[in-house]
Amino acid sequence: MTVRGTAGRVTRRRARTRANLLDAAFSVFAAKGFGHVSIEEVCEAAGYSRGAFYSNFASLDELFFVLYRERADLIAQQVSDALAGDGPGLDVPAAVDRVTEVLLLDRDWLLVKTDFLVHAARRPDVARTLLEHRAGLRRALADRLARAGGPARLPAALGGADGAAHAVVAAYDGVTTRLLLDEDAAGARRWLKQLLTALLTDGSGTPV
Rank of each mutant, 00 (worst) to 15 (best):
residue 84 A to K: 12
residue 123 R to W: 01
residue 202 D to P: 02
residue 32 K to V: 04
residue 129 T to C: 01
residue 100 T to M: 05
residue 131 L to E: 14
residue 147 R to A: 15
residue 144 R to F: 00
residue 175 V to Q: 03
residue 139 R to C: 00
residue 12 R to A: 15
residue 117 L to W: 09
residue 101 E to D: 14
residue 10 V to I: 15
residue 9 R to Q: 15
residue 17 T to P: 00
residue 173 D to G: 06
residue 175 V to A: 07
residue 3 V to T: 13
residue 203 G to L: 06
residue 22 L to D: 02
residue 106 D to C: 05
residue 41 E to I: 01
residue 156 A to G: 06
residue 162 D to Y: 03
residue 68 Y to K: 15
residue 163 G to S: 10
residue 18 R to M: 10
residue 153 R to P: 00
residue 113 K to I: 00
residue 56 N to E: 14
residue 80 S to V: 08
residue 83 L to C: 08
residue 125 D to T: 11
residue 8 G to L: 12
residue 201 T to Y: 03
residue 98 R to G: 06
residue 128 R to M: 15
residue 86 D to L: 11
residue 174 G to A: 13
residue 2 T to D: 07
residue 136 G to Q: 09
residue 91 D to Y: 05
residue 195 L to M: 14
residue 28 V to H: 04
residue 128 R to H: 14
residue 208 V to E: 11
residue 47 G to E: 08
residue 134 R to Y: 09
residue 114 T to E: 10
residue 97 D to C: 05
residue 141 L to F: 10
residue 78 Q to F: 04
residue 156 A to P: 00
residue 148 A to I: 00
residue 72 A to D: 09
residue 32 K to L: 06
residue 32 K to M: 02
residue 66 V to E: 14
residue 157 A to G: 15
residue 14 R to V: 14
residue 96 V to R: 05
residue 98 R to D: 07
residue 1 M to F: 08
residue 37 V to Y: 03
residue 84 A to V: 11
residue 73 D to R: 06
residue 2 T to V: 11
residue 189 R to P: 07
residue 141 L to P: 09
residue 155 P to C: 13
residue 144 R to W: 00
residue 81 D to F: 03
residue 146 A to L: 09
residue 111 L to Y: 12
residue 160 G to N: 05
residue 20 N to I: 00
residue 70 E to A: 13
residue 57 F to T: 08
residue 10 V to A: 15
residue 180 L to N: 04
residue 203 G to P: 05
residue 10 V to P: 09
residue 176 T to I: 02
residue 81 D to R: 12
residue 70 E to P: 01
residue 38 S to H: 08
residue 115 D to G: 11
residue 23 D to P: 00
residue 195 L to V: 14
residue 114 T to P: 01
residue 190 R to T: 12
residue 65 F to D: 08
residue 61 D to Y: 05
residue 144 R to P: 00
residue 194 Q to N: 04
residue 170 A to V: 02
residue 48 Y to E: 13
residue 8 G to H: 10
residue 90 L to P: 01
residue 197 T to R: 05
residue 131 L to M: 13
residue 119 H to F: 12
residue 194 Q to R: 15
residue 95 A to M: 08
residue 64 F to C: 06
residue 27 S to I: 03
residue 9 R to C: 03
residue 157 A to Y: 09
residue 16 R to G: 01
residue 148 A to T: 09
residue 142 A to C: 07
residue 173 D to F: 07
residue 117 L to E: 14
residue 157 A to H: 13
residue 36 H to F: 05
residue 89 G to M: 04
residue 203 G to K: 09
residue 68 Y to F: 15
residue 170 A to P: 03
residue 173 D to R: 13
residue 13 R to Q: 13
residue 29 F to H: 03
residue 19 A to N: 10
residue 160 G to D: 07
residue 86 D to R: 12
residue 57 F to M: 11
residue 87 G to K: 11
residue 130 L to F: 07
residue 4 R to H: 04
residue 45 A to Y: 04
residue 139 R to T: 11
residue 87 G to W: 07
residue 179 L to T: 07
residue 17 T to K: 08
residue 88 P to R: 11
residue 65 F to P: 01
residue 76 A to W: 03
residue 175 V to E: 05
residue 101 E to P: 04
residue 64 F to Q: 04
residue 186 A to Y: 02
residue 182 D to K: 11
residue 162 D to L: 05
residue 169 V to E: 11
residue 144 R to C: 04
residue 151 P to T: 10
residue 105 L to M: 15
residue 174 G to R: 06
